[in-house]
Design a protein around this nucleic acid. Structure first.
Lengths: 271, 271
DNA sequence: AGAGGCACGTGTCAGC
DNA sequence: GCTGACACGTGCCTCT
């Protein structure tokens, strides 16, 4: 992953890390007229006084003159520079990981290509998933109406992503997803989560609550059991925030939401 | 000339600013720039103090004089600025469309969140697709629908992160059995039962307690949720009564005991 | 009152 | 050459 950067980046990295400031000297910083948010901007034809002198400026070399209460502002400012650098670095890494997730992408693809391809890739996958989902439903429906009993019985139970097929008729049954740490049972709008976390990771409950919030799930009840080496949770949640105009679509959405939640939870625990 | 340049600039600005994250329905205004139609609002008086002077270059206002070979360089430079602006704009739009593709994302999510969530989303979708394919293949391969009320579930879920699959040695993980009505997750001496019963069968809780007693299981906690048509239970139990002379045998015994319990429970519910 | 985010202008370095 | 891509420093703005 890191490697991606190639010499290009690594050089920059070097740069980034090694020296802190020098470039400034010249720093004309130019003019910025046109400031965004705040307003300003000079209008069109009329010129106006743009650029004011402002030296205010920071650590200029040479040129004596007044140094005074620099220091407070100084460190403040340096901190700003530093955080901005960090932020950029973070972004770079995120781009790298995003890059690594997209197949068939030139190793040195630039940022726009990355985002672009990410968009395309996501669209493709969403489309594919949608199609598969539709296909599946139609299969189920067809089986029900035509041959009711015979046809599609096989394949109940199975790998992790498995809906217990016979469920959909009218009764209330669990549709279950399993992983070593997180097991989720969806039943209508409700879901039961079983979670085990060992060694104990601080912040798990916080993350759970965050996820509930993110996906607009209500926490009906939560049961926590601790022992020195492990902690287990049982959660009962309810999905309320999803418009239910079309029951089938809604149930699909609920399911997807739950799946998403469970996946993220699992990833977090294993991270 | 100068004027032209200015004009140019301001126009471009307009363009550039044309909504930063436009797609998003609400708001924003993003912040920046308040332009109203053609005019610009300029800031309060105080603001002006900024704007650096710095000669070096660029379109300074008024001040006639030194035009000479400025222009080529000048124009050159402006072009640089312009292209950079365009590039940023492009990036912004791409971010916006990327944003629009990710479900459950806060409308004003910042760039890192967008990339972050994109990564997560892609991972999830890839995983889901992979699972679906596996599922499909297995479906084609074997119609193994033998009795299978309780299919034994391995575990495993995600591929990329962890081989946590059967690391049962020392870690604490779930071993899960599923059926439409009863899902059981064993972890060490403890187990979580998820039960759904519809229509409601009177006496279920009594039966549960009877079973716990029969197999010498302790009921650590029980959560019951009722609605008119269904009732769900989450139970946390602990097996204490089993002699533990030989740890391996013991864990086997515990597992068998739980399996037996779950089976009887399921049979009762479906009877 | 302050931390984080964004877009700007700017210099620099790769590669058609 | 020139063109595009990047990272940088910097001012301003928002959200808390």
């Amino acid at each position: 992953m890191v490697e991606e950067a190639e010499h290009d980046s690594s050089l920059l990295w070097n740069d980034d890390q090694s020296w802190a400031f020098p470039v400034l000297p010249v720093h004309d910083n130019g003019g910025k007229l046109l400031i965004d948010g705040g307003k300003i901007l000079l209008s069109e034809g009329t010129a106006v006084s743009e650029q004011a002198a402002n030296d205010k400026g920071k650590k200029r070399s040479g040129c004596g003159s007044g140094e005074s209460d620099d220091h407070d502002h100084d460190h403040d400012h340096e901190l700003h520079i530093w955080t901005e650098r960090e932020r950029r670095k973070k972004m770079r890494n995120m781009f790298a990981t995003l890059h690594s997730l997209i197949p068939h992408l030139h190793p040195r693809a630039d940022k726009s290509s990355i985002v672009d391809e990410a968009v395309i890739h996501i669209k493709n996958m969403q489309q594919t998933l949608e199609d598969l989902e539709k296909q599946k439903e139609e299969k189920l429906k067809g089986g029900q109406s035509r041959e009711a009993f015979l046809a599609e019985q096989g394949s109940t139970s199975q790998s992790q992503l498995q809906p217990n097929a016979n469920a959909n008729a009218n009764g209330f049954f669990f549709k279950t997803w399993t992983s070593p740490n997180v097991v989720m049972n969806v039943c209508g709008n409700d879901a039961h989560f079983n979670i085990v976390c060992s060694p104990i990771k601080p912040g798990l409950m916080t993350y759970v609550v965050f996820l509930m919030d993110k996906y607009n799930l209500h926490l009906v009840s939560a049961h926590v059991a601790s022992d020195p080496t492990a902690r287990t949770y049982m959660l009962h949640t309810r999905a309320n925030g999803i418009p239910q105009q079309f029951p089938e679509a809604a149930s699909f959405l609920v399911e997807e939401t739950y799946k998403q939640t469970a996946t993220e939870l699992m990833l977090w625990i294993n991270s």
